[in-house]
């Protein structure tokens, strides 16, 4: 079976961990995220085993740890659809990713689509489209489009 490393990246508290929880074999507890800044999960998608690196979210004090991105075959950029700053911040995060590992296949999850206050600007969506990124409105809570998100990335890889 083919194996691929993918990374979940995004700002703090956008729901990266919740998205993966819906979909994966839990091996380690979430405390790893706060201790060493990453949590590993695995899941089999079609005939590929995904090793998902759930990288701790970026906040104002600490950027994402780019070392954890090395060797990733693809990236899932996660933003909170109810917080515009996290959506526009994806471009900054992508810049870090691209600098470290190059332009790897990428999908975007605009999470928390089950909540009413949706703030995603058209300009951001256009920007994502121009980069040929597939964008999904996901809900970790309701499981909306979570599987599609991962399947799409696997197809791109």
């Amino acid at each position: 079976m083919d194996k691929k490393k993918i990374c979940m990246v995004g700002d703090f508290s956008v729901g990266k961990t919740s998205l993966t929880q819906k979909f994966v074999n839990n091996v380690f507890s979430e405390k790893y995220l706060t201790t060493i800044g990453v949590k590993i999960d695995t899941v089999e998608v079609e005939s590929t085993k995904l090793i998902i690196w759930d990288v701790a979210g970026r906040d104002s004090l600490s950027p994402i740890n780019a070392s954890y991105l090395v060797g990733a075959a693809g990236v899932i950029l996660v933003a909170d659809g109810t917080r515009e700053s996290t959506v526009s911040g994806l471009l900054d995060i992508w810049a870090v990713v691209e600098k470290r590992i190059g332009s790897v296949p990428c999908v975007v999850a605009l999470n928390k689509c089950d909540l009413p206050d949706w703030h995603v600007s058209e300009s951001n969506l256009d920007e994502f489209a121009s980069r040929d990124w597939s964008v999904f409105q996901t809900s970790a809570k309701k499981g909306h489009d979570v599987e599609t998100l991962f399947h799409t990335l696997v197809a791109k890889i």
Partner: peptide, 13 residues
């Protein structure tokens, strides 16, 4: 795979 990745993560960390 998960353990190996974690080793690798710890290494990086």
């Amino acid at each position: 795979d998960a353990v190996s990745a974690m080793f690798s993560a710890i290494q990086s960390f």
